[in-house]
Design a protein around this nucleic acid. Structure first.
Lengths: 260, 260
DNA sequence: CAGTGGTCTAGACCACTCG
DNA sequence: GAGTGGTCTAGACCACTGA
């Protein structure tokens, strides 16, 4: 929602959105050919530039593949997730047709501890708002989330019911500039408390994702430490030598994916 | 090497390569402005199209950022890794200025077990070549690699010294069409044998990356199950709302990254 | 061989940044 | 306000696909 309504003013964005819709709705099935570029030109009444730009977007999302000499084709695995799905647990879970949930353990505004001062590039004595929540999928405990927000946006959270839904979506809707994030993924043993909350044994391997979220200006607005039950969630990376999409597609998946 | 020499025939590819070189060599430092598009046009003697295409490539690699109204700027964190670095342990480790190593435990050509038949989409009774290796960084055991290769390319490995270096590079150099891969990342406890080889305790959390590598035609050529010491390697994902790069950048990093 | 996408040119308008 | 990148048009040539 929030993301799509941003860049639809340009023609290529509208064209991409329409084709994306046809693919997602199934009216263009897997393996089908898309109309040729010249077809699309006359259909949308534009020149070739916007058409090619729209196709490039879909290609970068992994929805289509293009080959010289033949029309674009709908790709087998539409792995693409919107960027919101990657930042927001709630958005991601809903996109999978499941129900996200959360139980807040703590929300506090306090002076940042030294480690956090360093991690967020704060000045000594600055306040942050810290939140600890258990996140659930269809009622099943799946992830422990520890977040710290820059005071400028964190204060708004003190009046937000953090049990009610997505903090991320709330902040975006209130104009927070959460523009880019860096995630570091590794594996850690479950601490006793986390183990109990997630329903695993102490020391069981958890998939840890640490995130730093920045504004367009580079200001660090949020950091988080999310620990997933590895049997309930994993990370999926798709990666191709196709010259036109040098960067991979990343998605979170629920449950262990059978076919790799 | 192998990857760069592919698409340098077109003008935009040569332009991108030259600018990339200037960034990587440091003659364009972090934060510096690139020449404006019209400068680049006259400098390279081309029209605006190829210039913009080259800049789009660099943007998708995370090397530069562009803003309307000001020249492109060299990005803070050049996370970009070549696609080879993501597929090949050796290539990745070397790119980090360290020395890759490997110790082969087993290489065997045998009929695929039922699980592998399913995973690789084989027919019953087909042969595969399976390899188990311990991978090292600067002599330190870091990862256990279990791979299975489609017989068509696996046979070449029986005469290859798998202790000598990168299987992936060997296969690519011999014309194997390893075009796209899907990686699933999660966390698992170390089995007794793996624990001993990696120098961790049994049950310690390992970062597991399971890969399926396909040819352009979709034929599954390789699957692997790599398990990393989580304190020696992690995954890094960079992700931006910038409309023109919808997909994230993914890199492997050595050691835990201090600043998230 | 007809049609396709990949690439390039030349020119234009607009929104934006920054001095 | 001058210069920048984002977008679009119109036309062209070539390499490749597939019937």
């Amino acid at each position: 929602m929030t993301a799509d309504s941003i860049a639809l003013f340009a023609k290529h964005g509208r064209i991409a959105a329409q084709l994306r819709g046809q693919i997602e709705s199934g009216s263009l099935a897997v393996g089908d050919d898309l109309p040729s570029e010249s077809d699309l030109q006359s259909r949308f009444g534009v020149s070739r530039g916007p058409i090619r730009q729209a196709l490039a977007t879909l290609r970068s999302e992994g929805l289509i593949e293009t080959t010289q000499g033949r029309p674009p084709r709908v790709r087998a695995q539409p792995l693409a997730q919107s960027i919101d799905d990657f930042f927001s647990f709630s958005s991601w879970v809903r996109a999978q047709g499941k129900v996200p949930g959360q139980r807040t353990f703590e929300i506090a505004r306090r002076r940042a501890a030294p480690a956090l001062v360093a991690r967020m590039g704060l000045a000594d004595g600055e306040f942050v708002v810290e939140i600890v929540r258990l996140r659930l999928i269809d009622g099943i405990p799946t992830m422990i989330e520890r977040s710290a927000f820059h005071d400028s946006i964190g204060k708004a959270l003190l009046t937000f019911d953090t049990d009610s839904g997505s903090i991320y979506e709330y902040l975006i809707d209130n104009g927070a500039e959460l523009d880019e994030g860096t995630h570091v993924v590794d594996a850690v043993p479950a601490a006793p408390l986390d183990a109990e909350l997630l329903g695993v044994e102490t020391g069981a391997p958890l998939l840890r994702v640490r995130r730093v979220t920045r504004s367009r200006r580079g200001l660090i607005l949020e950091t988080s430490d999310d620990r997933y039950r590895s049997d309930h969630a994993s990370l999926l990376i798709y990666n191709s030598r196709n010259e036109n999409r040098p960067t991979p597609i990343v998605a979170r998946t629920t449950h262990t994916v059978a076919n790799a």
